[in-house]
Amino acid sequence: MAATRFWTYQDMHFPFSATRETLEALPDFQIRDDDIVVVSYPKAGSNWLMVIICKLLRAAGRTEEPVDTLLSGPMELTLKMAEQPGYVTLAARSSPRIFKTHLPIRFAPRGVSKPQNKVKVLVMMRNPKDSAVSYYHFSNKLCPLLGLGEPPAWEEFARAFVGGQIQYGDFCDHVLGWWQMRDDLHFLFLKYEDMKKDLPGSVQTIATFLDITLDGAAIAAIAEESTFDRMKQDFSRSQWPTKRIIPRKGIAGDWKNMLSPDESKAFDSWCERKLCGTGLNFEFE
C-alpha cells in the first residue's frame, strides 16, 4: 500500500525519490548566510508558509522573482519532471534562496540543523490528526499521477501513520527533533492552527523574524493575498502537476470528518505517550 511505499536508510523511512546518494550528500550541503529554510513534516502547511515568505521578500525589494519561480519542492527529492535532485538545482540558484525540507533533523544539512550567522529556519507544525488526513488525500492524488498504483484505504493509512510506518517516519519523533531547537534564535516555530486564527498577525511575526519592515497596510495586503483560496487559485496555474494537487481544504479540524472514535483515541494515546512533558502541544479544534 502507498503508506508503506518507502525505503529505509539509517532506520528512517524515505520516499524512493530521496535517493541514498542524495541523503549522503545533504549533511555537507553548503548553506548560505542569507538562506531561508522552511522545515516541516509533510502536509503541515509548508507551501503556505513559503508563499508568505516569497511575498514578503518581494514586497521588501529583496527579490524580483515571481512567487512560482521561488517555490520549490523538498530539497531531498528528485521530482518526476525534474532532471536532477532538488539540492543540485538549489546549489545553482541565485540568492536569496528560499527552500524547504521534510527531513528529520539528524538528516538535514548541518547548516540547517545547527545554523550559523544570519541563516533563518522556520519550522511549520500542524496537529497530527489533520496532518494525517491531509497526507492521505494528497497520497490519493499523487499515486495515480506518478503511476504508483492503488492508494491505501484510510484505515490502513491511519494505522501506518500512528505506527510510524510511513515516509519520513513517526510524526511525533520528527517534530520533537526540531522542537529541541526552540530556544535557538535562528529558528521560528509556527503552528498551522495559529496562522488560521490570525493570518495578519502571523505574517507580521514572520516579517519581523526575517528582518523585514513593512507598514500595516502592506502586511494586511500580503495576508489577503496569502489566504487559502488565493493560494489554491495560484497553485492551479502552476507549471508543475504535483504542485497543482497540493491545496485541498485548508482548514483546521477536518480530521473529524475522517477519524472514527477509535482512531481518534489511538491518535490521542500516541500523542500523549510521545509528547507529554515536552512543552509541545497541538490544538485539534
Rank of each mutant, 00 (worst) to 15 (best):
160 A>E: 13
160 A>W: 00
161 F>W: 10
162 V>Q: 09
163 G>N: 13
163 G>L: 05
163 G>F: 03
167 Q>C: 10
172 C>F: 06
173 D>G: 11
173 D>F: 01
176 L>W: 11
177 G>Y: 04
180 Q>D: 13
180 Q>A: 14
184 D>M: 04
184 D>Q: 12
185 L>D: 15
186 H>L: 03
188 L>P: 02
190 L>S: 08
190 L>Y: 02
191 K>T: 10
195 M>I: 11
195 M>H: 09
197 K>Y: 01
198 D>I: 03
199 L>T: 09
200 P>L: 03
201 G>M: 06
201 G>Q: 09
201 G>P: 07
201 G>R: 01
203 V>Q: 01
204 Q>D: 07
204 Q>G: 09
205 T>K: 15
206 I>V: 15
207 A>E: 04
208 T>A: 08
212 I>E: 01
214 L>N: 13
224 E>V: 06
229 D>V: 12
231 M>H: 11
236 S>W: 08
237 R>L: 10
239 Q>S: 13
240 W>P: 01
242 T>M: 14
244 R>S: 04
248 R>P: 06
252 A>Q: 09
252 A>L: 04
253 G>Q: 10
253 G>T: 04
259 L>K: 12
261 P>F: 07
261 P>E: 09
262 D>I: 13
265 K>C: 00
265 K>H: 06
266 A>R: 15
266 A>I: 14
268 D>L: 02
269 S>R: 15
270 W>Q: 05
270 W>E: 06
270 W>I: 07
272 E>F: 02
